[in-house]
Design a protein around this nucleic acid. Structure first.
Length: 568
RNA sequence: CGGGGUAUAGCGCAGCCUGGUAGCGCAACUGCUUUGGGAGCAGUGGGUCGGGAGUUCGAAUCUCUCUACCCCGACCA
């Protein structure tokens, strides 16, 4: 390929509305262009990368025995009424109506469609297990699309769905997919981590996420510094930090804390540690308000809280008026004593003694509070976020925190969808049995952004070889005028093309510095610089994008040298 | 959805307060020079000033309205 016959439009300046590096670089390198909020066009250059990602996924999925197919992106609303998931997805569903007034959704995922397909197609246990997958455009009407293709509304996803007669068989395929996802990400040359996850709106029992590690990742993941345990912070078990509740030492005392509302303020005002305090959060319960109590220095986990049967979903905090009505004080002074609603405490809080909390009276707190003696809770549960330094839940080491970009998510759905949609097969005894189901998603377009997020420097993208739009860039200095440069560049271009290597020759009439910095931005891994100066000495220059240092290679040997570099 | 902001050439912006029919940088195009790290000179093309309505002799500018896009949104107990 020659740049004169390709479409290459780079920008030297950082786009104004791009916040994260991958978004900035994708715009600057001309991989994507924005059409509207959360909608992006992939240029020929970006599309080449997208195809690389798809190709690797196909290879590994096919190798796992999964079967590729294609389902409609547009789905009838009735299908979603069968599973009752319209509520779960809420505003994320893009609804539309055809000329006859029939209602549709642009598919955000395809559990319903595949289950509908399978209930007609799969009638016998002899057809099982089976794993279908597709690579397709999805749409989720995100509240706030951002970060380019990292969180766009329209995006490309690989989604797979497996069906089984038994949970054991489901587990086998689930493990196979876990391995397949590891293979895919390894093949792409990315650093990643598989973690335990919350299953969210998809539902089901077990699930794991695959995160590409990057500081800008939207998710916090916790992992043991010595053991194998790793989990999304939404799911990470937060153990009690106190083994046993100590006997009360202090008397209950009400103290004035004028205008001290936050944990920070009160702790400083009273000269105590935040660990000696608790915070009481009031949320909607299934039946009236519920109090959730975590230690002063801990964060409530909204995900865990929302999972409690006593708590209404979606989680909602009481507003100031409602707090006033229930407690008679404002939000800065809520406490657990004589609180007129059920109290659910975090495991650590349940073991605290002589602690400090609000007095349910403005500008006052209580010190020396003790459970049983001064107040009671109805239930204890894990409702806080784990934090770095906590003991690992599996007892191996302590937790550390990292940021990750979720690029894959695998679920054991069980019979949730097959039961709701009556997808059954006959087993070997001739009896109808609901199918067991697994589902396995991977964000194709997001992977492109994640790869850049993890692989870049001040000068631009550094593509992992497996994802690079071109393997080799031939950068001739003064190609237009120097006949020997042109000859050498053209020859090498021909040789590499003939060898099936993806190569791009920059035949634009631009100055050397411009060309070199352009290809630093584009991140082509192997670059050959050809100029009169080096040709006169019988060599050309090679540089590897990641390291940037140039080395001289004899002109006659450059082809073999490149082949060797590419395969290593 | 709530709050804030922006909308003028492909990109980034000025002009608006104080109405008089649009400009700068980059990019693009042409020519000449230059050619191993973001070239110089000369010239050229490109804008219904987001849409609609109003005020006015006259609106990018003032008023109303609609739309799009961007940013923030338990972290307080």
């Amino acid at each position: 390929m020659r740049t004169s016959q390709f479409h290459l439009v780079t920008r030297k300046e950082t786009p104004q509305d791009a916040e994260i590096i991958s978004h900035q670089l994708m715009i600057r390198a001309g991989l994507i262009r924005k059409l509207g909020a959360g909608l992006y066009t992939w240029s020929p250059l970006g599309f080449r990368v997208l195809r690389k990602v798809e190709h690797i996924i196909r290879q590994e999925m096919d190798a796992s025995g999964a079967l590729e197919m294609l389902m409609p992106a547009v789905q009838p609303k009735e299908l979603w009424q069968e599973t009752g998931r319209i509520e779960d997805f809420g505003g994320q569903l893009l609804a539309m109506t055809d000329r006859a007034g029939r209602d549709y959704f642009f598919g955000p995922t395809h559990e319903e469609v595949i289950t509908e397909f399978v209930r007609d197609e799969i009638t016998s246990y002899k057809q099982l297990p089976i794993n279908f997958y597709q690579i397709q455009t999805k749409f989720r009407d995100e509240i706030r699309p951002r970060f380019g293709v990292m969180r766009s509304r329209e995006f490309i996803m690989k989604d797979a769905y497996s069906f089984h007669l038994s949970v054991e068989s489901l587990d086998d395929t689930y493990r196979l997919m876990e391995q397949t996802y590891s293979n895919i990400l390894t093949h792409m040359g990315l650093h990643f981590r598989c973690v335990l996850a919350d299953s969210g709106a998809i539902g089901g029992s077990g699930s794991q996420e695959f995160h590409v590690l990057a500081d800008s990742g939207e998710d916090a993941i916790m992992y043991s510094d010595t053991g194998d345990y790793a989990a999304n912070i939404e799911k990470c078990e937060a153990v009690s930090l106190i083994a046993e509740r100590a006997a009360p030492q202090q008397a209950l005392k009400q103290v004035a804390t004028p205008n001290q509302k936050t944990i920070d303020q009160v702790a400083e005002f009273l000269g105590i540690q935040q660990q000696q305090m608790v915070k009481t959060l009031l949320v909607d319960g299934v039946d009236g308000p519920v109090a959730l109590v975590v230690r002063g220095d801990h964060q409530l986990s909204e995900v865990k809280a929302a999972h409690l049967p006593e708590v209404a979903t979606p989680l909602r905090f009481l507003d100031e008026k409602e707090v006033q009505k229930l407690t008679g004080c404002d939000v800065g002074s809520i406490g657990v004593k004589d609180l007129n609603c059920p109290i659910i405490v975090d495991l650590t809080v349940a073991h605290m003694s002589d602690f400090v909390c609000g007095a349910n009276q403005d500008n006052h707190h209580l010190t020396g509070v003790n459970w049983q003696r001064d107040a009671d809770f109805q239930q204890q549960a894990d409702i806080r976020e784990a934090q770095a330094g906590d003991p690992s839940p599996d007892g191996q080491g302590v937790l550390k925190q990292a940021r990750g970009i979720e690029v894959g998510h695998i679920f054991q759905l069980g019979d949730k969808y097959s039961k709701a949609m009556n997808a059954v097969v006959l087993n070997d005894k001739g009896q109808a049995q609901a199918l067991q189901m697994g589902c396995y998603g991977m964000g194709v377009s997001r992977l492109v952004a994640a790869a850049i997020e993890q692989n870049h420097d001040d000068n631009g993208i550094i593509w992992p070889t497996a994802l690079a739009p071109f393997q080799v860039a031939i950068l001739p200095m003064n190609y237009q005028k120097s006949t020997q440069v042109k000859k050498a560049a053209d020859e090498l271009h021909q040789q590499l093309s003939d060898a099936g290597i993806e190569v791009i020759l920059d035949d634009r009439k631009v100055r050397p510095g411009f060309m070199l910095s352009d290809f630093e931005l584009l991140g082509i891994p192997h670059q050959v610089i050809i100029g009169d100066r080096s040709l006169d000495e019988g060599h050309v220059e090679y540089r590897y994008r990641e390291k940037m240092d140039k080395q001289k290679v004899e002109r006659a040997k450059i082809h073999d040298f490149l082949c060797q570099q590419i395969s290593s």
